[in-house]
Design a protein around this nucleic acid. Structure first.
Lengths: 254, 254
DNA sequence: CGCATATTTGATAGATTTCAATTTATGTGG
DNA sequence: CCACATAAATTGAAATCTATCAAATATGCG
């Protein structure tokens, strides 16, 4: 269960190094992270709300979602995770999370013990900082979702969600884009505070407008500039660029 | 500008030690944090959206809010901060935040240089961890807000916001509670994805139901159990209890 | 006292939900 | 490869909540 990780951690390492500068040694430490992989069925809950966990998950394949339930049983999805993400990295410092995690389609995760994460975070301050920063970016996305759900129309909300996943998937290249998007309309509705019926109608409108088309677990963006404009989408909050010189360590000169 | 901090940091230290176990030395390091205090006028923006900052703020007095704007100029408040909070602690690892910060009433903040925060985080892993954890709890609150805005009625949303501030202010003691709540109806609306008019009508209903009453920058909770029930409020996400033995350090045995 | 801000009220329009039903995909076993 | 079962997508009509527009009243502050 040790060194298959070189393959497994690749996506996660890429996510980290997108925003944090890590030395080769530190990168190796990430790759050497132990863990057991598991296949999750569609819609299966793999971290229950309020469950206490001793490990965190790296998402290797498929999409997952953070979710909560209201007393009336209504579901709200509060984050979408794509391969390479670590949906519950935050459990490393807060093992008791009110939200749960579930698979959106079929997905596979690598369960990494907290002890291992804490060990490398303690040994390499730059890794601790990278983990911290990653959690902060997750929060930043949540704040943008609040703007999306609180203040935008249904149509803009749907468009914005698609834009975000496109950008995070690095799928945009020119005016068109096509990428994995294995969310059902019910799941999209739960992510956007809408009903599935309304999402359905909204999606048809977006298609009729020549902006975007969803089919069979794929999204086809037909006109990226127009869609981004319609969605009021500004990718800055995703923090996907990092200046090469801004290697930051907790101890300024160490 | 150095050691007035013993007083200034008191609230912040209390917030940290509520969720993280810090040794006396570490606590002293927090109290020794340098900083300049500043008075902020009502509604003044003290951290602009997308501004790059070299310091973070401890909120000493008054309420502040994190906010964003949509392209149409609509405002969404995505977090409320009360005295003792550090609204932009996350800027220590991500100096470029898409959200802005503004005062809700008059407030005073202590601006602490990132360099000082990074220095003590580097020197004391337990402090780095406490900072990380604090950011994670902020995110946890944001996730609950998504549930609130996405899936609850206007009335439950308003009630939930009031419950949250009551709990964070440690104001609840029995069935009744009274505490500072310097938010206007416009601000409440912006925090909940509603219009001020609707908030006004909702507040009147809540008052008529004998649940809660807002007046002159104060909130009076008339029937806490009923209000919490109506709001579907469960304080678990605020993580305000910590077991005495769960002192966690990044390096397991260090 | 008077201005600026905040709250309150009324009437109307509109977006979204709810309820009910149908059609279309998708996957699995025979 | 087809039939079946299940999940997902689609459509329609009516109900409801919330927003919008417009105006009046309170409240706080200098």
């Amino acid at each position: 269960m040790a060194s298959t990780s070189n393959t497994h951690c690749h996506g996660f390492l890429r996510r980290l190094t997108q925003r944090s500068n890590l030395s080769p040694v530190e990168q190796q430490a990430i790759c050497d992270l132990p863990g057991r992989s598991a296949k999750i069925r569609s819609n299966e809950v793999f971290v229950h709300p309020n469950e206490e966990v001793d490990h965190a998950c790296i998402l290797l394949e498929g999409f997952a979602a953070r979710f909560d339930h209201s007393a009336e049983g209504k579901r709200q999805i509060s984050a979408i995770y794509i391969p390479g993400d670590m949906p519950d990295l935050q459990s490393t410092v807060l093992s008791h999370s009110p939200s749960g995690l579930q698979a959106l389609g079929i997905c596979t995760v690598l369960r990494v013990p907290h002890s291992a994460l804490r060990a490398i975070a303690g040994r390499y301050p730059a890794i601790a900082e990278a983990f911290w920063r990653d959690c902060v970016i997750d929060a930043s996305i949540a704040f943008q979702w609040l703007l999306n759900i609180g203040r935008r129309t249904a149509s803009a909300r749907v468009a914005h969600l698609i834009c975000e996943i496109a950008a995070r998937s690095k799928a945009v290249d020119g005016a068109r884009a096509s990428f994995d998007f294995p969310m059902t309309q019910v799941q999209i509705a739960d992510a956007l505070g809408l009903t599935a019926i309304h999402v359905n109608r909204t999606l048809r409108t977006l298609r009729d407008q020549g902006l975007v088309q969803l089919k069979r677990n794929k999204a086809d963006i037909l006109d990226w500039p127009a869609l981004a404009e319609h969605a009021d989408f500004d990718p800055a909050y995703l923090q996907q660029k990092i200046g090469p010189q801004q290697r930051l360590t907790l101890v300024a000169g160490a």
